[in-house]
Amino acid sequence: MSDAHIPSPQPSTGTDRVKRGLADMLKGGVIMDVVTPEQARIAEAAGAVAVMALERVPADIRSQGGVARMSDPDMVEAIMDAVSVPVMAKARIGHFVEAQILQSLGVDYVDESEVLTPADEAHHIDKHAFTVPFVCGATNLGEALRRLGEGAAMIRSKGEAGTGNVVEAVRHMRAIAGGIRRLGALAGEELYAEAKNLQAPYEIVAEVARTGRLPVVLFTAGGVATPADAAMMMQLGADGVFVGSGIFKSDEPAKRARAIVLATTSYDDPDVLAKVSRDLGEAMVGLNLEADPQAERLAVRGW
């Protein structure tokens, strides 16, 4: 009832609760990368809770190289017009003007993403300064909490985008979840030093230690290519799944998209998972980073 005692006669926008609240509504869902309005409609029809509008899927960014930037506003708007689900779009790490433009277009979430080429090698965007909420990637708990300190309203484990290989997503999800469990085992006076180790704000460290969870929704990303991948990440503790190249780089995108949606909902029911994993055509080819030391690792972008 504490809320009822705070008088707020004027409606307020862009509050933490409103920003984090939209991510709460996406829980248990799949957010799909799309590059055209047609793909956006396929994703929505398959049951996507939101779409991520971008110029090239990570697999193409990886293979084509060059500087990857925010999408053309015309394309973002065309995708916003095509679907009724929320539309997210990516800005480069630290590129606050790209974020300002995306906010002006009216996108529902900005992804400050390591998949694009970073614009600032020291500073992320000050996300408190925006009305639009931000989702940010993290490889471990400290990185997640630093992003929260900067105002992120949703976290996704980074994984390794564009590889179709779930191993990095697993590594990062385990690192974040394990870090949270470790915090819960510390005594109160030990949290100050732990905040220093994590290089994260003490208040947020103490909150996570007390509640045993992040104060925002935690999705997974980077390498999910099959229904089983999605269900595994959910069982490891993700609140939902981002699928990038995995859908529209596969043989039958509509079928695979629907199968991944169903697997995310019924992530703990192997009978359903066995059923939806059939007859999907070829998955994206995938990339084994261990076997190719030259391949660029996107997850190391961001600090």
Binding site: P11, T13, V18, L22, Q103, G106, V107, D108, Y109, V132
Partner: peptide, 15 residues
Amino acid sequence: RRNAFGRQVASFEAD
């Protein structure tokens, strides 16, 4: 009417 109050940037809280 869906999203009648607007997109996410218009989401709000009020008494």
